Amino acid sequence: MPADTPTLVRIWDLPTRLFHWALLTAVLGAVVSAKSGQMDWHPRFGYAVFALLAFRLLWGVVGGRWSRFASFVRGPGTVWRYLRGTATAGERLDVGHNPLGALSVLALLAVLAVQVGTGLVSDDEIAFTGPLNALVSTDTGLAATSWHRGWGQWLLLGLVGLHLAAIAAYTMRGKGLVSAMWLGDKALPPDTPPSADGPAQRLLAAVLLAGCSLGVWWVVTRWG
């Protein structure tokens, strides 16, 4: 076999893959429950998103190589070289999230964080009052509710749609993004360093997720 023949390399560790699909499920659940008036379930899905976002923030520091923010958050110069097609192979910009995909991911996580934050302090004066609403003024709570139900919601849906459109476009070009996020591996040059994905890494992820979930539970019950 030639030395440069692509081989399967572990890019997305199991915790990252589970996070991805769990976040998708929680966001869909939050949207559907809100649209169908199931306000008992809407905040539960929101709390799940809260815990998952906290986990991803930590996992972006200590997770597998290609799940770390340091591996895919790039500066303007690198993004520009990628757009111009002048990046070098040694930069490995297409191994995990490419520079454009990274911007999409960061924007999606940021908007989700704002939606969670505004939901926690919201008050629709009908069926739901966020557990942290008492910590803000009435005007702030109403402004947060307006954003959460208006611009924030549509911005989130727009970013999700853009994310799905990008995945579809890459799939049509033969880029196995979905299969990589499902199975964890991509066909890459054999010298591509893999992400750590052993028992110790998975145990660490479980501990971090449990801690994040307990933290969210404490926040919700402390003031809720």
Rank of each mutant, 00 (worst) to 15 (best):
W80H: 05
D124C: 09
S146M: 10
E125Y: 15
G215W: 07
L108D: 10
P76F: 15
G64Y: 02
D4M: 12
L108E: 12
G141I: 08
L23R: 01
I167T: 14
G63C: 03
A48R: 11
L132S: 05
A3R: 15
F128C: 09
L58P: 03
Q201V: 11
P131M: 09
V79N: 01
A89S: 09
E125T: 14
L106N: 01
T145W: 08
L214G: 12
P43I: 00
A169Y: 14
M39L: 15
G198Q: 08
L157W: 11
L209E: 08
L53K: 07
Q153K: 14
G198W: 04
G64S: 03
G152M: 02
A210L: 13
G60P: 06
E125Q: 14
W41L: 14
A165S: 09
A127G: 00
F69C: 03
G198I: 05
C212Q: 06
P131R: 00
G161Q: 11
R44K: 14
V9M: 00
V62S: 11
T25D: 09
A205M: 06
V219L: 15
L155C: 13
L164H: 06
L162Y: 15
I126G: 10
R74M: 08
L203K: 02
Y82V: 02
D185K: 12
V136H: 07
G215Q: 02
S36C: 01
V31G: 01
W59N: 03
L142V: 00
V216F: 05
V95W: 04
L23P: 04
A34K: 05
F69L: 08
W182T: 03
A166C: 07
T192Y: 10
R202H: 12
A180R: 07
L203A: 11
G224L: 00
G117Y: 05
W217P: 03
K175T: 00
L177F: 15
S179Y: 11
L135Q: 01
W151N: 14
W218H: 04
G85H: 13
L162M: 13
L8Y: 10
P199N: 06
G119L: 05
G176R: 14
G158D: 15
R65K: 14
V207Q: 01
P189F: 08
L93Q: 06
V62I: 14
H20N: 10
H163R: 12
V121C: 03
V219G: 08
A51F: 07
R74P: 02
L209M: 12
F55R: 00
G215S: 04
R10C: 10
A168C: 07
E125N: 15
S213P: 12
G101E: 13
A206K: 08
W12F: 06
A30Y: 00
G46D: 07
G29P: 04
G152F: 04
T88F: 01
A30N: 06
T192W: 13
H42T: 10
D191K: 12
L100A: 14
V178F: 11
W59I: 05
L103M: 15
L57F: 08
M181V: 10
L156S: 02
T138V: 01
A107I: 09
P6N: 12
E91I: 10
T78A: 13
A3Y: 13
L155I: 15
F19Q: 05
D123I: 05
L162F: 15
L23K: 06
R92Y: 04
L132G: 03
I126H: 14
V95K: 00
A206H: 05
G150N: 13
F69V: 07
G85V: 13
T145Y: 00
G150H: 09
A165N: 08
V32W: 10
L108F: 13
L164M: 11
